[in-house]
Nucleic acid binder design. Structure first.
Lengths: 339, 339
DNA sequence: TTGTATGCGTTATCAG
DNA sequence: CTGATAACGCATACAA
């Protein structure tokens, strides 16, 4: 009656060959007290049968899966590092991460939340997005801890981890002003996301603080993609007075800018200086380097993990929390800085 | 007796408020025939209760989770795209992907296989690795379809998807020979992985085919990391006759080479020409571009998915299959090609 | 078509 | 400390 090799062995099989009751095996598996002689018998049986405890059945009974859902927008460099760090931190507490990538597809975004709900994840981490609050609220109501990062999603009882988008952007633009630029353009991100709004706000704030006009001609929407940066710089260069510098609100758009400039034989920073949000490997290696706002990814991961894990241990923390982290600006050649 | 908002509603709750039996609800959920009037009642009840079917209980009963495990070495550009494509293909068949990243950590590698076994994934995809065969074999014996890519893992009844590492490498080196290089070095990958062996083999084969000596001084192990490329070029440049070109067996090592050259003010391709395995974004944008072997990632994903899904539909396909895909070489400035 | 009953592999609750 | 047994939420034979 023991497992026939194809079939998975169960704790019943283990109990039988070890000559004990299933309850004893279960207790052994959960690190509770078991008589020494039984312990060795159980271990022997587990080894012999190749027993692997079913996480499915465990979840069924215990109402907890030890899995944390992560709704990823995409697998860019930022998220590659964030995923790595988060997975590491969660693993230390015996949990794992289930990722679902939506790639900006609004339909997938909602499917993902349903998927996580079906999977009964113990907690959910996601980058905020406007039209997702209804679905997420359902999870929150069920008592699933949710943590939001990057973009805010208003009116939800969730923990939040952000970076100082506005002030970092402002400092980035002030750096351009400091090295002598007066005609500074920006390609900005989606305005229905808080990062998009705040980074644009930082740009405007810096100009105003230094008595420079905020000129609509120098502001181009980019939708976060390479094409956005590409068409922005293309448009800027048709102006009577083209900008001498561009602040780009994320790295994908910056790549688009660089692409256009390469195709048209323009040089950085001689023809146009560049400062970008997000510090990626390319910016370190590119020609003289690209000056960039570096997000503290490891700290973001730690903050998210600490929020999630705290809610998972104590069962009910009273108030929702928000943490907003500082960014550093890495000076490189693209803003005229000599290394 | 209906769900109290905090608790998850079950099909029993749905059945009760819809005034039907649980079996009927279950059949409705699985798309079987249900009387029209009952159908609307059930839908109404589901909506009212916010019912979400428990994937855990479904898996418990049906012995299938609709989840496919993917053991990822890391989240580099190659895997970012591979994950995206694979997730998309699996999604189309109603399945999702559970990823576990081991980052080259041998302990995590084994833990991951155990994890997937516990989670009862329906199938497993992984990059081969020498010391993992024992753990994987256990899954194979249980009848879990396993598909291996990138590196082979010998002696296992699994499907395999590779690229033509040797011939692509050979062609890459021949390209360097064709543009006039005679002192061509290589920084190669781990020799306990088939990709490492084959790419080095391709390098040697090209040299021999053109009557050039295979000189150990021109061959440096790189272990796939940036440091490997960095120290390789460092060593090469101390030689009496430094190489005029380098073939790098992956992109991370190439980045290390570029880093060293930047630090020491050497130029590509004037001082050293470069051809690299893996085509990444950086190589497209870098200065005059880096000539690279482009792996057909989308085709790799399609092949993996088709292998996995075929084994999941028909229950028993007789023989294991292997597919080996061709690579293109993208010519750019780093090998002296003018664009 | 529908209802009822059983079992999937665990954990938890009891008596022993 | 251990053994027996009842859930957990769903799918599925089987009978109606």
């Amino acid at each position: 009656m023991a497992a026939d090799k194809r079939r998975n062995a169960t704790i019943h099989d283990v109990a039988e060959t070890a000559g004990v009751a299933v309850g004893t095996v279960s207790r052994y598996l959960n690190g509770q007290m078991v008589r020494q002689s039984n312990r060795v018998e159980i271990e022997r049986a587990i080894e012999a049968l190749g027993f692997q405890r079913s996480a499915v059945a465990k979840a069924m009974k215990s109402e907890t899966t030890d899995v944390i859902g992560f709704l990823v927008p995409n697998f860019d460099e930022f998220h590659a590092r964030l995923l790595n760090q988060l997975a590491r931190l969660f693993r230390q507490s015996g949990r794992t991460m289930l990722t679902y990538c939506h790639d900006g597809d609004r339909k997938l975004l909602k499917e993902a939340v349903t998927f996580f709900a079906n999977q009964r994840v113990d907690a959910l981490v996601l980058a905020g997005s406007g039209d997702i609050s209804a679905e997420v609220e359902m999870l929150v109501d069920r008592g699933v801890p949710v943590t939001v990062y990057n973009n805010d999603v208003m009116g939800l009882r969730v923990d939040r981890v952000f970076v100082e988008n506005a002030s970092a952007s402002s400092r980035a633009v002030e750096h351009l002003i400091a090295v002598g630029h007066r005609r500074i353009a920006t390609v900005y991100g989606l305005q229905d996301e808080s990062t998009g709004v705040q980074r644009l706000e930082g740009y405007c704030r810096a100009l105003k603080a230094h008595g420079l006009a905020v000129d609509p001609d120098y502001m181009h929407p980019g939708a976060w993609g390479e094409e956005g940066g590409y068409s922005a710089v293309q448009k800027f260069m048709t102006l009577d007075k083209p900008p001498t510098a561009i602040f780009s609100a994320n790295y994908q758009m910056t790549i688009g800018i660089l692409e256009w400039m390469r195709e048209h034989g323009l040089r950085v920073p001689e023809d146009i200086a560049i400062v970008s949000f997000d510090d990626v490997e390319l910016f370190r290696l590119y020609d003289g380097g690209i000056t960039a706002v570096m997000q503290p990814i490891d700290k973001i991961a730690e903050s998210i993990a600490s929020y999630v894990l705290s809610r998972l241990s104590k069962d009910e923390l009273p108030d929702i929390r928000t943490r907003t982290l500082d960014c550093n600006i890495i000076l490189r050649g693209s803003s005229g800085y000599e290394r």
